[in-house]
Computed example of a mutant assay.
Amino acid sequence: MPATFNHTIIAAKDRRESARFLRELLEAAEAPSWGPFTNIQLADGVLLQFAEPPVEIQMQHYAFLLDDDHFDRALRRLCDDGVTHWADPQMTKPGEINHEHGGRGVYFLDPAGHGIELITRPYL
């Protein structure tokens, strides 16, 4: 069997809030949660586990591939919710999206301060 990506743990200040934020934005399914984890599951089966570590959270980058209609809904939700977004990871183009790789992309921060990227075309 070839290797596939199964799950990751995402550090959060409030694991339930971070899970809710991404679950709603990504239109992901709730998943059973246990112990220190609040979980959501992406359509391809990847499990995102949110936990509150006892150390300072370091910013990480997470990118999600969406179809065009889902991207439109997610961008509308970000704007409606007043979430600042940028066209670039350096955060120099606020309120814009990019058109890289033949698609569209946007960057923003989740409730824990992680850099989230939504794209409509894969890089490769």
Rank of each mutant, 00 (worst) to 15 (best):
T4H: 12
H7I: 02
T8V: 08
I9V: 10
I9G: 10
A11W: 14
A11I: 05
A12M: 05
K13E: 07
K13Q: 05
D14W: 02
R15S: 06
R16I: 13
E17M: 10
A19H: 05
R20V: 02
F21R: 03
L22H: 05
L22T: 00
L22Y: 02
E24P: 05
E24C: 02
E27G: 09
E27W: 06
A28N: 06
E30N: 09
P32T: 07
P32N: 05
P32S: 08
S33R: 01
W34V: 11
P36S: 08
N39S: 12
I40P: 01
Q41G: 06
A43I: 06
A43W: 02
D44I: 07
D44S: 07
G45F: 00
L47S: 14
L47P: 00
L48Q: 00
L48H: 01
Q49N: 05
A51C: 10
A51N: 09
A51Y: 07
P53Y: 14
P54E: 13
I57V: 11
I57Y: 00
Q58S: 08
M59W: 06
M59L: 09
Q60R: 15
Q60P: 09
Q60H: 15
H61Q: 04
H61T: 10
A63R: 14
A63N: 11
F64Q: 02
F64G: 00
L66V: 04
D67R: 09
D69N: 12
H70Y: 11
H70T: 13
H70K: 14
F71S: 00
R73V: 03
T84N: 13
H85A: 01
W86L: 01
W86I: 00
Q90R: 04
M91S: 04
T92H: 15
T92G: 04
T92W: 04
P94Q: 03
I97S: 03
I97Q: 02
N98M: 08
H99T: 09
H99P: 03
H99Y: 05
H101M: 14
H101S: 15
G102E: 15
G102L: 14
G103T: 12
R104F: 04
G105P: 05
L109A: 10
A112E: 07
A112P: 12
A112Y: 09
G113W: 08
G113K: 04
G113T: 08
H114T: 03
H114G: 00
H114L: 02
H114S: 06
E117G: 01
I119V: 13
I119F: 13
T120N: 09
R121C: 10
R121N: 12
Y123K: 04
L124I: 13
L124G: 08
